[in-house]
């Protein structure tokens, strides 16, 4: 038995040494940081005066680089639900100043998230393993912890194997650059690919509205309220917003009058209940009909779009007294 255990021990040490070495190489590549967007959660400063939570809609709308005189930080992650907004906020609250402004973006799909069974939500967890404590990640199992937290090498895609040997040193800058213009707009001919937008409507809106039939999820609303209550209890100043969307997106078939009525009723009720403001830019005509401001039909681009919105948004924050 001793001989067997000794040999098994040596065998496991060799296997895990190889795996941990490869894992070390992989998690130190820029490509890995781009895939999990972990590069955005590095070097978080202290005494932050304004942050935003939210999904990619916020990520593509708010740029704190133009807010030189204040410390701001973007905690949004693609498809981030209120549940993870809350956990991000709790995990990183020690970095916030006492009266930090907390922007809580609300997207059309947020009240309809199907938490316990939605595979998208489950898949999203991979974003959180490197940046959240394990106990803040919902519905986890030991296999997920192994492959997302301890050994992300076990989750690598075939096409990324090459980066273990040699990293792409421009991966992050290329990734950021990719979103600077509208992918359906040609600046040379000044024309847009309408079919592309309509196709986006088919695929994106379906993704955003796929749970509409199940109705509003009370858990989502409860999580949003908990975020607001947490902010108020800590002395932070919460602000609800919806980022600009294009007319194409707003006019999508699934976003019916009944949907808008329900969406605004819930949002306004929360706003009134906690006496906090809700700024809705979703139908703001300064953005909605200018396709050159968008990356696709529901995200501003990281060029003109994010600059214009950030400028308008920060100015209003200053005027309304959120930023002093």
């Amino acid at each position: 038995m001793k001989r067997f255990l000794l040999k098994m021990g040596i065998y496991l040490i060799i296997i895990f040494s190889v795996l941990f070495y490869l894992n070390y190489r992989w998690t130190n590549t820029q490509v890995y940081e781009v895939i999990g967007e972990t590069y955005r959660m590095k070097n978080i400063p202290n005494e932050i005066e304004i942050i935003n939570l939210g999904s990619s809609h916020a990520q593509f709308a708010i740029d704190y680089n133009s807010l030189k005189e204040y410390k701001g930080y973007d905690f949004s992650i693609p498809a981030q639900s209120f549940m993870y907004d809350l956990n991000i906020l709790k995990q990183y609250q020690k970095h916030l100043s006492d009266d930090c402004v907390v922007i809580i973006p609300i997207s059309y799909f947020d009240y309809y998230e199907d938490y316990p069974i939605d595979n998208v939500i489950k898949r999203q967890r991979r974003f959180y393993y490197p940046i959240l404590n394990i106990n803040r990640i919902k519905y986890l199992n030991i296999l997920d912890i192994l492959i997302y937290k301890w050994l992300p090498i076990l989750n690598i895609d075939k096409e990324n194997l090459v980066y273990i040997v040699e990293d792409d040193k421009n991966a992050i800058s290329n990734y950021e650059r990719k979103f600077q213009q509208n992918k359906y707009y040609s600046s040379e001919t000044q024309s847009i690919d309408i079919d592309g937008f309509l196709f986006e409507n088919d695929i994106k809106v379906y993704g955003h509205s796929k749970n509409f039939a199940k109705g509003v999820n009370p858990y989502s609303i409860e999580q949003l309220k908990t975020i607001v209550e947490y902010c108020l209890a800590k002395g932070y100043r919460p602000l609800l917003i919806t980022t600009p969307f294009s007319d194409y997106y707003n006019a999508a078939e699934d976003f019916t009058e009944d949907f808008y009525e329900e969406f605004y009723q819930i949002t306004n009720n929360i706003s009134q209940q906690y006496n906090i403001e809700y700024w809705d830019y979703s139908h703001d005509i300064r953005f909605t009909n200018d396709i050159t401001l968008f990356y696709d039909n529901n995200h501003l681009n990281k060029g003109k779009g994010i600059s214009l919105f950030s400028s308008i948004f920060f100015d209003r924050l200053k005027i309304e007294g959120y930023l002093k």
């Binding site: 060799i14 296997i15 895609d157």
Partner: peptide
């Protein structure tokens, strides 16, 4: 024999991972 054990195990892990 040990080279075979290690190579087989790593090949299995790699295929398991890459096939997702």
């Amino acid at each position: 024999r040990w080279i075979v054990y290690i190579a087989f195990t790593l090949a299995i892990i790699a295929q398991f991972v890459l096939s997702n």
